[in-house]
Nucleic acid binder design. Structure first.
Lengths: 348, 348
DNA sequence: AATTAGCACTCCCAACAGCAGAGTGCTAAT
DNA sequence: ATTAGCACTCTGCTGTTGGGAGTGCTAATT
C-alpha cells in the first residue's frame, strides 16, 4: 500500500482503527496507531485523517478525548473494500470435517451439529435453519396407523428432512389400506416440489374415482396441513456467548434482555434470514442493517445451502459488531459448503 | 396465628421477612416489619427475634446494618412448613386449558407449548422433558424405504412420542418386504416396554428362522441403536427471564454467564430432573440443594408426568431463589396434571 | 420475665473534590 | 503537506464527607 497516496493512507488508518478496536475493545488513539503500527507519520497527521474519517461518518468517538471507534458505515466499508479474504486454518478445517464424519445420522443431527460448530469456532451464537418445506421436493410419503382413527403421516423430503404429523380421522382404516394409499401417493407425488402438492392432489382426486376417494380427500387435507403450518426450524446454539461479548464491550446491560428475548424467540432470525435466502454466498449484516433495533449492536454473518440446485436453507452466526469479519466470513463460507456437500452427496 | 405464642410469632416474622424480600428484593428491617405488617410489638422486640432467627441459620444479613434476608434454610422452612398452598386463579387455569385446546397436534407440540406456558406464567424459565424412552411402551413400529439401501424406522411410543431413525443397510429391500417385516415386529413387540426390546428381539430371532432372518438381525441392531442412544429431549423456554431476575437481585453479573451456559447445555437440568423422576408430586430445590454450584442462587420447582401408570417425564421452572413459591408450586402442579390428562386421555 | 426506649455504632451510599492520564483540536512553525 | 506544541476536555480513580438506615446492647418499664 502506497503511503504517499493520500487515499490509501486513509484506508490504511481506517483499517488499523478497526483491527485495533476488534482486538481490544478500546478506542484507537492517534499516538497508538503511529506507535504500534510503525506509521511513518506523526500522531498529529493521523489525527487530521481521523478527523476527516469522522467527518465522513466512518468513525466516531464516545467522548471528547477518547480515541476513535468504527461506525456501522466504517465496518461496512471495511467489509466491502478493505478486509482481505481469509481461509480457516488447516487444523480448523480438518476439525470440522472430522466432527461431521464422526457422528453422522439423520439430517437433524447434522443441523444440530452445525449450529454447535458455528458457535464453538466463532465464539458467538451459531444458527442454522432447517430446509424450507415449500422449496423442497417430496421424496417419500408413508401413512402409518396409530390406532383409534389416528394416522401418522411421515414425509421424507429430498434434502433428508423428515417430518411427521398426526392426523385424526373420523373413520377407521386398516394398515393394509394405508399401505396401498401410501403407494398411490408416492407414485403420483414423489419428486414434486411441495409447493405444487395441493394442486396436484386436486387433479389426482378428479381422475381417481375409486374406493379410496374418501381417504384421498383426507390425505389432501393432511398434506395441506402438514406443509403449510410448518415453519422452518431454527437450531440455535451458544446464545450465552452474546453475554460475554456484551460484557467486554461495556455496553449497558439494559438492552441485553431484549437481545436475548429477540434471539430466543427466533422469529427475528427467521425473518432476517428469509431475506437472505434469495441470494447465494456469504452475506454480512452490520448493526442497524439488521432492521430490528434489538440487534443494532450486533452483526449477522450468514450463507445459504442448497438441495439439488435450489437454495433451501441458511446458516450463520450472530455476534457483536466488533467481530473478526474475515475469519467469520471464512468460517460461515466453509461450513455452508460442507453442509452443501453432505446434503447433496448422500441425501439427494 | 396467636401472637402471644412465642414460636408462632417467630414463624410469622420469618414469613414476613420472606414475603417482603420476595416482593421487593430488599432486605427486611425490623421497623419496616412493625410498620407495614401491623405488628403489635416494637421494633426492638422484632430485632431480638430476628437475631435469634439468624443465630439459628434461617436468616442472614448482607452487612452489619442492613435488614435480614432469608438463607436457603429459611426458604426451606418456609416451603415445608410456613407457606400456604395456593391455587391458580380461575382466569389462569382457564387460560392454560384454552391454550392447550386451541392448538393440539402431536406430542411435540404439547411439549413445546408446555415449556412456553410454564415460562410465560411464571416469568421464569420453563422446561419439560420428553418421555424417557426406556420407561415407555412401544405402540407401533414402521419401516419405510428411503431408497439407496436406506430405511427409516419410525417408532411410536405409547405416550405419543414419535422417534425416527435412518438406517443404512448393505442390501436392498422392497417396500412390500418392509411392510411385512413391520407387521411381524408389531405383532411381537408392540405393547412391550422398550427396556426389554433387545432381549425380546433375540428370542424372536431364535424362533423365527425364516427368510427375513437377515433383516430381523438388522432390525435388532436398529432398535438397539434407536433406543439406547437417544436421550430425553429438553424443551426449554424463557431463559432470558433469568437475566431479568439477576438484574433485580443485584447479584454480580459475573456468574450469570455460567448459569446461562449451564442451562443452555441442558445437561444439568437433565441430571437434576433425573433424580426427581423417581418420585411423584411437586418438588422444590432451593439454592445449593441443586448440587450444581452454577445454580446456587436459583431454585427449581418441578413435578412429573406419567404415561399409563409409570412416571416417564418431568417438567418445571427455574428461577431465582427469591420467587413466589406458593404460586410456582401451584402452577407446576396444575400444568403437570393437565399434561397427564392429555397424555393419558388420547395418547394412551 | 418480657418488652421497650434510647443510643452508640457500623456500614452503605451518593456526592463531591482533586488529580493524573489519555487524547483531541487547533495554531503556528517548518 | 506535515508536524511540534500546547491548551483543553473528559475519564477514571481515590479519598473525604455526611446522611441515613439499621442493628445491638443496655437500662428502664410494665
Amino acid at each position: 500500500m502506497d503511503m504517499n497516496d493520500f487515499k490509501e493512507r486513509k484506508k490504511k488508518i481506517l483499517q488499523v482503527v478497526i483491527h485495533h478496536y476488534v482486538r481490544t475493545a478500546r478506542p484507537a488513539a492517534s499516538r497508538m496507531i503511529v506507535r504500534d503500527y510503525d506509521f511513518p507519520f506523526s500522531s498529529a497527521t493521523v489525527r487530521n485523517v481521523l478527523a476527516e474519517l469522522e467527518e465522513e461518518g466512518y468513525l466516531t468517538h464516545p467522548y471528547t478525548s477518547a480515541g476513535r471507534i468504527p461506525t456501522d458505515k466504517g465496518y461496512r466499508f471495511y467489509v466491502n473494500r478493505l478486509m482481505e479474504a481469509q481461509k480457516l486454518t488447516q487444523e480448523e478445517e480438518r476439525r470440522i470435517e472430522r466432527e461431521y464424519r464422526a457422528k453422522r445420522r439423520g439430517l437433524e443431527e447434522v443441523l444440530r451439529q452445525t449450529s454447535k460448530m458455528l458457535s464453538h469456532i466463532s465464539h458467538h451464537a451459531g444458527f442454522i435453519l432447517s430446509p424450507t418445506l415449500e422449496r423442497s421436493f417430496l421424496k417419500h410419503i408413508e401413512l402409518v396407523p396409530l390406532g383409534g382413527k389416528r394416522i401418522l403421516a411421515v414425509l421424507v423430503i429430498q434434502a433428508g428432512l423428515i417430518r411427521h404429523k398426526t392426523i385424526q380421522l373420523n373413520y377407521d382404516l386398516k394398515r393394509s389400506q394405508l399401505y396401498r394409499i401410501s403407494e398411490l401417493l408416492n407414485e403420483k407425488l414423489s419428486g414434486l416440489p411441495l409447493s405444487q402438492m395441493r394442486e396436484k392432489m386436486n387433479r389426482i382426486i378428479e381422475q381417481e374415482s375409486n374406493k379410496y376417494l374418501g381417504l384421498l380427500q383426507a390425505a389432501k387435507g393432511l398434506i395441506g396441513q402438514a406443509f403449510t403450518s410448518e415453519e422452518s426450524e431454527i437450531y440455535l446454539e451458544g446464545s450465552a456467548n452474546i453475554l460475554a461479548s456484551v460484557k467486554e464491550d461495556l455496553y449497558d446491560y439494559a438492552g441485553v434482555g431484549s437481545v436475548f428475548r429477540a434471539i430466543e424467540e427466533k422469529r427475528i432470525i427467521l425473518d432476517i434470514v428469509r431475506r437472505l435466502i434469495q441470494s447465494e454466498g456469504v452475506k454480512v449484516l452490520i448493526g442497524r442493517e439488521n432492521l430490528y433495533p434489538e440487534l443494532k449492536d450486533f452483526s449477522v454473518v450468514s450463507s445459504t445451502y442448497k438441495s439439488g440446485n435450489r437454495v433451501v436453507g441458511a446458516l450463520g452466526i450472530i455476534g457483536p459488531k466488533r467481530m473478526e469479519y474475515p475469519k467469520m466470513v471464512a468460517l460461515v463460507d466453509f461450513i455452508a459448503k460442507v453442509v452443501n456437500n453432505i446434503l447433496n452427496s448422500e441425501g439427494g
